[in-house]
Write a protein that binds this DNA or RNA. Sequence first.
DNA 1: CTCCCGATAT
DNA 2: ATATCAGGAG
Length: 220
Amino acid sequence: MNRKQMRHILDVIADMFPDAHCELHHSNPFELTIAVLLSAQCTDETVNKVTATLFQKYKRPEDYIAVPLEELEQDIRRIGLYRNKAKHIQKLCQVLLDQYGGEVPQEHGKLTELPGVGRKTANVVVSNAFGVPAIAVDTHVERVSKRLGAAKPDDTVLEVEKQLMKLVPQEEWTQTHHRLIFFGRYHCKAQNPQCDVCPLLDVCKEGKRRMKDGKNRKTS
DNA sequence: CTCCCGATAT
DNA sequence: ATATCAGGAG
């Protein structure tokens, strides 16, 4: 795929989702970091249900390490993967207090060194909380990029990210990231992609293949 | 690569 | 019943 082909895709998804945004509820960089950490293999809707009460009980890093690990585990149990996540949160809060005065660092390299924070989470935090252009490749961005042909089927998430950074102007990285997520979450879905009503069908090999094979099933 | 894991959609 | 969900660590 070249930049001109990508430009067309960007214009179409901009028209479909003009105000795509971060759907994880948060009111500061620290809450955003916790929310993204919790969101692994879990819908943002479930995360928001939990953080609605979680963020009332735990305001600062000190609050998370003041309770027994088991108590924090129970407070986030519905998220899934809760034992790892609770452990990561306590370790992360300890590091924030020990090394960063209780604040979330703005440097991408420092973020990825935090427990439970990988490249994808760091990208979300720097772009959403600190205004640094970034394209976080989550399950939706990966799937959509590969279906549309912006990345190869066996590319790693890092390779997908690099490819998108080449194809998309830097000033549009963060916005594009959100629009690709919305496109993947609400339209080009994992299970029932709505190829039959997709404005990108004419440029999507995967979509044409699905329509031809009759795999596109519009059930609602 | 495997493991972690509950909630929801299909 | 199975697939999937804003992944990361060992």
